[in-house]
């Protein structure tokens, strides 16, 4: 194991410990016994198949969206626009799905996915184009594209497409749903976890291969590490930036598979619940490593469902505090590990 990887594991574990301690202090302040809370959380999530399933279900879109973001982040493109990209992509995915499901049957899935991917990719194209042609910071453009995407989705959904007195699209046919995990094993009975989870894992593994074993991955990381040197080494940096944004943004739309084909059968306004932003934390925490993203997404999934599970004891927002503290402490601990373990200055 390389020293860098070891350092990474050390700093993640250390910051988890710091977070647990800090959260405990907060729990004590509001008069709760942290041991009871943590014990309940652990037994609820890991003690029942349902709880575990829910945690996997929550982790699935975080893995997928995290992979899309990792593509951008590896090239040092700070894509803040996943929230908009994934919403407009999933929205279009659902429209295509319910419109053509009786005509195409199960084959509607690839078609709908392609359509969603394409629209999200278009949302990635704009910031990439502006960055390449005009040097506009992608941070600003992606934030602005978020507003546009959410406003457009809202408008078309409410004005034209929503089922009466709801904020959702029409439901797709039952026969184009993705099998649930409970269909394979009764352990997961009642949970929304579905086969998309395995797709997400496969996607992360594939992306890991792309990043670390292919020319495209090396060029992507080279552009992220040193764009000037990349240019001198003959890497077409603009092309790399464009592809990273197109595929990365497109990939975020794939979270729609989990929700539309695996769970509800329709797009519902607000389904993402800030998924696009939480994924930024998940990705950064994993240092843009897709395999790492699987683990950080699972951690966030556990916390997400765990928050609900302990909601009777403490407000579920305590887990949001926990998530935020993890990020803050990893940033602080990382520096300390770098200085004292890796002996960098």
């Amino acid at each position: 194991m390389s020293r860098k990887l070891k350092a990474g594991i050390i700093s993640v574990s250390l910051s988890l410990i710091v977070t647990i301690v800090l959260t405990s202090v907060l729990l004590l302040v509001i008069g709760k016994n942290p041991f009871v809370i943590y014990a309940t959380l652990i037994s609820e999530v890991f003690g029942t198949g349902y709880g575990l399933g829910q945690a996997l279900f929550k982790a699935t879109p975080l893995i997928i969206c995290g992979c899309g973001l990792a593509l951008c982040f590896q090239a040092s493109l700070f894509n803040i626009g996943a929230e908009g990209q994934l919403n407009i992509g999933a929205f279009v995915m659902s429209i295509v799905a319910y419109t053509f499901d009786d005509m195409l049957g199960i084959m509607v899935m690839p078609v709908a996915i392609a359509a969603g991917f394409g629209v999200s990719a278009l949302w990635g194209f704009v910031p990439a184009f502006l960055k390449i042609k005009r040097g506009v910071s992608e941070v600003i453009t992606t934030i602005m594209m978020n507003f546009i995407a959410l406003a457009l989705v809202n408008y078309f959904l409410i004005e034209f497409l929503a089922v009466k007195s709801t904020v959702r699209t029409e439901k797709i046919l039952e026969n184009v749903f993705i099998p649930k995990l409970s269909d394979i094993s009764s352990v997961f009975q009642g949970s929304s976890a579905n086969m998309t989870f395995f797709f997400a894992i496969a996607l992360a593994v594939f992306l890991y291969f792309v990043f670390y074993k292919t020319r495209f991955g090396y060029e992507l990381r080279a552009v992220g590490l040193n764009p000037t040197a990349s240019r001198y080494l003959g890497v077409k940096t603009n092309k790399v930036i464009m592809w990273a944004f197109l595929i990365g943004a497109g990939m975020t739309s794939l979270v729609g598979i989990n929700f539309i084909f695996g769970y509800k059968g329709y797009y519902e306004f607000g389904f993402s619940n800030n998924l696009g932003f939480t994924s930024i934390a998940v990705t950064l925490l994993a240092r843009n490593n897709p395999i790492g993203i699987i683990f950080t997404a699972l951690l966030f999934g556990v916390l997400d469902y765990g928050g609900l599970a302990v909601n009777t004891l403490v407000p579920k927002e305590i887990m949001l505090v926990f998530q935020a503290l993890v990020i803050l402490s990893i940033l602080a601990v990382d520096k300390i590990v770098k200085i004292y373990y890796l002996k960098e200055n």
Partner: peptide
Amino acid sequence: PDDRIGKGMIKEFSVGENVLLREKKELIY
């Protein structure tokens, strides 16, 4: 180039990785 660290290589990559990147021949590394 004049500035070997800033322009001549990706300093985080190894010898072989820098060579492969410059060659632009292989798809799988």
